[in-house]
Design a protein around this nucleic acid. Sequence first.
DNA 1: TCAAATTCATTCGTACACAAATAAAGTTTG
DNA 2: CAAACTTTATTTGTGTACGAATGAATTTGA
Lengths: 148, 148
Amino acid sequence: MPQNATSSASKSQTGYNLDEQVGFILRRVSQRHLAIFAEHIPDLTSTQFAVLAKLCEVGPLSQNELGRRTAMDAATIKGVIDRLRLRGLVTSRPDPGDLRRITVLATEDGRAMFDQFSQAALAITEETMAPLDDQERVAFLTLLQKLV
Amino acid sequence: MPQNATSSASKSQTGYNLDEQVGFILRRVSQRHLAIFAEHIPDLTSTQFAVLAKLCEVGPLSQNELGRRTAMDAATIKGVIDRLRLRGLVTSRPDPGDLRRITVLATEDGRAMFDQFSQAALAITEETMAPLDDQERVAFLTLLQKLV
DNA sequence: TCAAATTCATTCGTACACAAATAAAGTTTG
DNA sequence: CAAACTTTATTTGTGTACGAATGAATTTGA
């Protein structure tokens, strides 16, 4: 009997096979998604677009709050905002009610950029999900949501 | 009628809602997975462990080939191997048959490290998938695989 | 057979991602 | 009210991730 009863993939004695682990597959799916993203929206990274989209969706937010809503920690959101500000897509002003806070908002240019690319962003989602039919997409999103 | 017919989440005029996009959910699931990883295996990053696992699984490989098998580009795999080598977990030697190539292999310590943590790595996969029952896990992995 | 194309490893630059430490501002509570 | 705690933003350091450029080695194909 051959060394492996379950599949063609090799396995160590301990039963660990990299190619079967969720984390590894998850990373590769993310890579594919980010490649699709860069094809459709080469001007912005996916994280930059996420921040811009969130600002356009809900309006001005403090930097930390914005980070929370886009799933970025304080250090990360700062860098993203710095780069967006450098390009004139967002501005910030002090919060009059709380001297610790910085309120971040999209500029005219930022809004224009979001409007310009929001359709492309939907196309990115579509292309990422392209290998699945409609039923599978619903099922996949439902399951994926449970893993957050 | 309120502005939104489909759900409680807000939507822009263009129909783009960040929280519904696969890419965004994918990123958050990856974040959760990496947090679980770091809890179980604080000594190595998931990418470092992936490289070590692949080397223990298939034996010595050229640096580029190793990168291909672990889904890392040439620049990324070099950094990962440099850090693993610095810690004595892998070594490398020139390929006699091809002067461009560097053959990378796990050291004794590297193998020991993999053996020590391979069970933990399986527990990481288990914990990542914990919100799903057995049927859902199979379904999820099948669908996720299609998106690579 | 020799020029063109490809592969391999390296380097540089940019951009997340997060831990840990810090300081200032705000909140809670004894 | 003051001490203790929390929140906010910043900084530093480490580690992916990838595009682009480079040079050396190998393969190819006319």
